[in-house]
Design a protein around this nucleic acid. Structure first.
Lengths: 331, 331
DNA sequence: CTGAAAGCGCTAACAT
DNA sequence: ATGTTAGCGCTTTCAG
């Protein structure tokens, strides 16, 4: 081992891990030797001896959806800068999920776990807590553990208020279901709609609200349903850009023009939005991953960690929203 | 430990890892005890003792691009089914890359590494080989290690031949640069174009080929350039759907209709393609990740592994391709 | 500031 | 088929 390089067995360990009481000269000598021999400490051995693994587990429900990839990028950037290894757990279905929380493979395998857009119920949270690792959430909340996310209610209001400001009064909402698997809290995005309309003195027509899964197909279907109404909306607020894009597709196929006949707005600022000239409410996704990374790192160092960080969203007006043809305000 | 449960120290180990000579009764008793105590073997300790880590490292250049997310899904599905942990390394820039191949964090941390759409040069390959772990590639080749990928040349031909069969003779190509970071071998996608035209007896006009980065913006710019030609193409072949979508955008903005005025085809069958009604050549991405997973697993078990698996691609004709308005064949 | 010694929790021969 | 005996390669008290 590197021991034969310098002149010490345990001192090497201290030197390499930047311990206090080590002579500068010795430290240098040890590092030099390590470099020459391309020495890399065995994480198994050091983990066994120290109790720390140097790894953080990341739990995600998906990988192929943009939000998760982008958030993961941010997270990984922080963690790898701190020389932490990232252990990836993709819990796609109920089965994988149950197995994970039962067997807790994360146990003893990581020093912390971050839930990325992955909501857990109380029982799952408790099991996680019992394994005694740090817990951080991004795009979701888990108990009172540190978390980063946007303010979903505020984001929803930004979208709906934009439509209202444009003069729309008959506004449809395409809700997204499956709150457990999706980032953010769709419940809040729905509440924002009701609140915004109420504040504007606009009555709520239940027929204008339709729930579909988080996908362009869902959006397309929902739009079809809204178009079937005797008095269809002049604007539509979708919980996500992916859904909004599907809605736009249906409008086009129906021969209607966006935004001339119907305005559409989404949330997220998914790359698709820029590509399809869709107005939306942007959320910083990479940044949420990065912040989650900073939080775990701080937690691991025993530093104080903010319990709740909310990153700002902002309205991005593109070409899919415009005033209604005959504003209802003009009677 | 679980030892106190049954009646044995090392026997427990054998039982839990399904070793041969263990009485069925004992095995059951041990598992039962382990379950009751929620016992999970420390991977550090067993790794230290056995030399195996139970982990496989995955190297990717990106995470937010669809291809990587989808391939990763397939890979992770296989690995987690085999109870292997996945260590994720995202080598986005030259810096991260150099650090990785210099420090080789993968060393001793994983039993195998899979390169996902991540091409390496000879020196990097050699360094990787010297750490003595299994190597598998997906969407790329690395030396003669097992790999899965599509036949990029064949895919390119399927695309270009489709355009030729439609009657197009003046066909533009939007090439993609940055071969090291992208899946597949763009070089082959370009060669296919030249070969297809030659086989069809169509001369090659260098002005019809433009190189841009792998993005919609790149495609948009390239299309602009092609449109500036005195004799613009009647059809365009893009190396990827992301690029093709950008090209379509430019056409629309210019007032030209697809496919009436210009046909466009891409490669990949990215979700965007279905969404924008883009003709393309589909490649099974999830499946490539899964196959890579099977390969690592087999390699780890010492089983023979095929050196090269090629998964089939197929033409998907949608609404972005049609015969040219006045086929050059009709003079 | 640096050696020496004692494990960390498991697995793998080697016995029995 | 199961128990015994050694370590795996580090980190850490504990002395010096």
């Amino acid at each position: 081992m590197a021991r034969r390089a310098g002149v010490s067995p345990a001192t090497a360990s201290r030197a390499l891990s930047d311990h206090p009481h080590v002579a500068e000269a010795t430290r240098a000598r040890v590092w030099e030797a390590a470099r020459e021999l391309e020495y890399v400490a065995s994480p198994e051995a050091s983990g066994l001896a120290s109790g720390r693994t140097g790894r953080v587990a990341v739990v995600v429900p998906h990988l192929s959806r943009w939000w998760f990839g982008a958030a993961l990028e941010g997270l990984v950037a922080q963690l790898s800068a701190a020389a932490k290894d990232v252990l990836l757990y993709r819990l796609g279905d109920a089965d994988a999920r149950r197995t994970f929380f039962t067997d807790l493979p994360a146990r003893r395998r990581a020093d912390a776990v971050v839930l990325l857009g992955f909501g857990v119920d109380d029982e799952e949270r408790e099991r996680l807590e019992r394994i005694g690792v740090g817990i951080v959430a991004a795009g979701t909340r888990v108990g009172s553990h540190p978390s980063v996310s946007i303010d979903d209610h505020a984001a929803g209001r930004q979208a709906v208020d934009h439509l209202l400001n444009l003069g729309h009064r008959r506004i449809g909402m395409i809700e997204t279901t499956d709150p457990e698997l999706d980032p953010g809290q769709p419940g809040h995005r729905s509440a924002a709609y009701r609140r915004a309309l109420a504040d504007a003195g606009v009555g709520i027509d239940p027929a204008l609200v339709v729930s579909v899964p988080w996908s362009p197909e869902g959006g397309a279907r929902a739009m079809g349903q809204l178009l079937g109404l005797s008095d269809p909306p002049t604007a539509v607020y979708a919980h996500s850009d992916e859904v909004a894009v599907g809605a736009v597709g249906t409008l086009r196929r129906t021969g209607l023009q966006v935004p001339r006949d119907v305005s559409v707005i989404g949330i997220d600022d998914h790359p698709l939005a820029a590509l399809t000239d869709l107005s939306t409410v942007a959320q910083p996704v990479f940044e949420q991953g990065a912040e989650a990374g900073r939080m775990v790192l701080a937690g691991l160092l025993g530093e104080p960690v903010e319990e709740r960080v909310t990153v700002p969203t902002h309205l991005v007006i593109r070409g899919s929203t415009a005033p209604p043809r005959s504003p209802s305000g003009e009677s």
